[in-house]
């Protein structure tokens, strides 16, 4: 079973994403912001990370840079990272890709979009 970490400061979004991804047979972990997500990754590196952009303490982009830079250990290059955010302009998307994001989901999302994007990145 593949393991996906959902990073979002909204409990509702985490719940919705969890329900969809559990249906797609993922084992789910949750974190409320980038700093907690880094702690989580230091404990156990997930296969996939669904990542919000705007969060308190450490935002999604800062988290991604830290992760890819080895801030959570040497395995930081491995997880497939999918941004999932209301930021939907080219500048944000480009910055995310440059920081090492594999895919980018613009909110609002539904099961069909998550499934398409997870398939796109070889997770399904």
């Amino acid at each position: 079973m593949k393991h996906c970490l959902i990073v979002d400061d909204s409990r509702v979004i985490r719940k919705v994403a969890r329900r969809i991804l559990e249906e797609l047979a993922f084992e789910i972990g949750e974190a409320e912001d980038g700093a907690l997500a880094l702690d989580y990754c230091r404990q156990q590196m997930p296969d996939a990370i669904l990542l919000d952009w705007n969060m308190p303490n450490m935002n999604g982009l800062e988290f991604l840079r830290a992760l890819r830079g080895g801030g959570a250990g040497s395995e930081g290059e491995r997880p497939v990272v999918l941004f999932c955010t209301t930021e939907n302009d080219l500048d944000h998307i480009t910055a995310a890709i440059e920081a090492g994001a594999n895919e980018y989901i613009m909110k609002p999302f539904d099961k069909e979009i998550l499934e398409a994007k997870f398939t796109e990145t070889g997770l399904l």
Binding site: N88, D89, L90, I93, A101, E103, M106, I113, A116, K117
Partner: peptide, 23 residues
Amino acid sequence: SQFEVQRGLPIQMLVKHFEKEGE
């Protein structure tokens, strides 16, 4: 629509071949 470009289209393709116009 944003919904249509997220089904099947890899994000790199969106960035390369589309321009944003409003939403």
